[in-house]
């Protein structure tokens, strides 16, 4: 590969990574700002915070970890992970509503 081609290739990568970097910085600023907005329901702050965190996580996993274009084997490994992670969270949330018989709640 020629020296010029090296630099072009490197420059292309750098531009993409920088865009993701700026998006992550912006995401962090929005996360902090949203946490101070006095919504009537605090659950809204939590929901928004988690949505932004999820978007940031997608950017890191997708572009920095190259998951946007990876081999099938890695997707297969992650499919199992997602299944069990979602299952774990489902059990966690389910436990909130799983009351023994005759329980009286507020």
């Amino acid at each position: 590969m020629s020296e010029k081609h090296h630099d072009e290739h490197f420059g292309h990568h750098v531009r993409r990574y920088l865009l993701v970097f700026y998006a992550l910085l912006l995401g962090t600023a929005i996360t902090v700002a949203v946490s101070y907005v006095p919504f009537t329901n605090h659950a809204l702050n939590i929901g928004l915070g988690l949505v932004i965190a999820g978007t940031k996580a997608f950017l890191v996993a997708g572009y920095f970890m190259h998951l946007i274009s990876e081999r099938k084997m890695i997707y297969a490994i992650l499919a199992f992970t997602v299944f069990f992670f979602v299952g774990l969270m489902f059990l966690t949330v389910w436990s909130f509503y799983d009351f023994p018989p005759l329980t009286i709640t507020r």
Partner: peptide, 9 residues
């Protein structure tokens, strides 16, 4: 994820 759930929310 740790930052918002522990520091902000």
């Amino acid at each position: 994820f740790l930052f918002p759930i522990l520091y902000l929310l």
